[in-house]
Design a protein around this nucleic acid. Structure first.
Lengths: 194, 194
DNA sequence: GTCTATAAAAAGATAGAC
DNA sequence: GTCTATCTTTTTATAGAC
């Protein structure tokens, strides 16, 4: 890795961490520069404005939370459907618990997006992909005969909401057995009578 | 209402709206003063620092989201249990949809709380009250024979998460039939075999 | 690529007149 | 209570040397 790439990476990673610790608005080039160990104007060589840095990290975050990063429809079969659904949820919960900055940065950008047309569209894409992804999944489950075929729409949205909000609860360190909640949620969409 | 009370109220309401529109960090005394139509130093007569203003609005918001502000355990009977639960959820959804600033300000404070011991305790109280509230409710439902008595804990947390996250989804204007999702969620905790 | 120096604007906050 | 004037600090950002 070239020296300039190293600096670039250091800036991005430091900014990401500081966005989490202090918030995007309160993170300054001075703070980042000091932490990285370079001068403040040096950052302008890589990101010509703070907004550009914010945009860059936003795109990184979006890529990390795409539905396809977690779910592969083909992996779900009649026999493993419930277990696979539980497992994928567990994987997401673990990922979120592992990176303590992740949820906070997401929430930061969620607020930014709610105020800024530039971000909102990209975020809605991700959100929509999740809703449609879950719906396709439940339709497949219904075709396979393992999930109920009524109210697939609302049930899919319910699952998306629960998974999505686990991150929100983690923010406050709420002492919940998130995996148990997910098991419970999955159970409600699985056909009992098989 | 005295003139000073009017100014006080104007400052608080303007700040609340601006916290939503621009975020807490990016809302300045200058902006508030201009909007209210007073000078910047005048605000210091009512709130001796920006932090004090932030604290005040935080407490207002906390009062508005207490579990007891929505749920009254005694109102739930064997006959109306499901309908009452659905109705209370609807009321919360409507309240959130009515005040477009509400969800954003909550999210702002959620992030603040996740970084600040002073806020986190108060917020955890509210959050905890909600979790325990739902649990008590489901226990009552179980005693009345209308809800399942297994996994009451996880089921209660699931309901809390769904209701809580509706606000999050509203932030992005996600086109979801929130009421239908809530109906679906309530249905999953109601005993089918009566 | 990274630095020093510096500009321009705006922040939070106070002093003190009225 | 509300104002004008002002202070201090910090911000984003640029110019230009090395």
């Amino acid at each position: 890795m070239k020296s300039s790439e190293k600096t670039f990476t250091a800036i991005v990673e430091t900014a990401y961490r500081m966005f989490s610790e202090y918030g995007i608005a309160k993170t300054t080039y001075s703070m980042i520069a000091e932490e990285v160990g370079i001068s403040k104007p040096s950052i302008y060589y890589y990101f010509k404005s703070k907004e550009e840095l914010i945009n860059y990290i936003f795109e990184e975050v979006c890529k990390a939370i795409e539905f396809s990063a977690f779910f592969t429809l083909k992996n779900f079969t009649k026999d493993n459907f419930k277990d696979e659904l539980v497992a994928v949820g567990f994987r997401m919960i673990e990922e979120q618990a592992k990176d303590k900055h992740f949820n906070r940065v997401i929430q930061e950008y969620l607020l930014l997006a709610s105020r800024n047309k530039k971000y909102i569209q990209r975020f809605e894409m991700v959100q929509q992909e999740f809703l449609v992804g879950f719906e396709d999944l439940l339709k497949r489950g219904s075709d396979l005969g393992v999930t109920s075929s009524v109210n697939v729409h609302a049930k899919a949205h319910m699952l998306a909401m629960i998974l999505d909000n686990i991150g929100n609860f983690m923010l406050l360190d709420v002492k919940i057995d998130y995996k148990q909640v997910w098991i419970e949620a999955v159970a409600t969409i699985i056909r009992d009578e098989v």
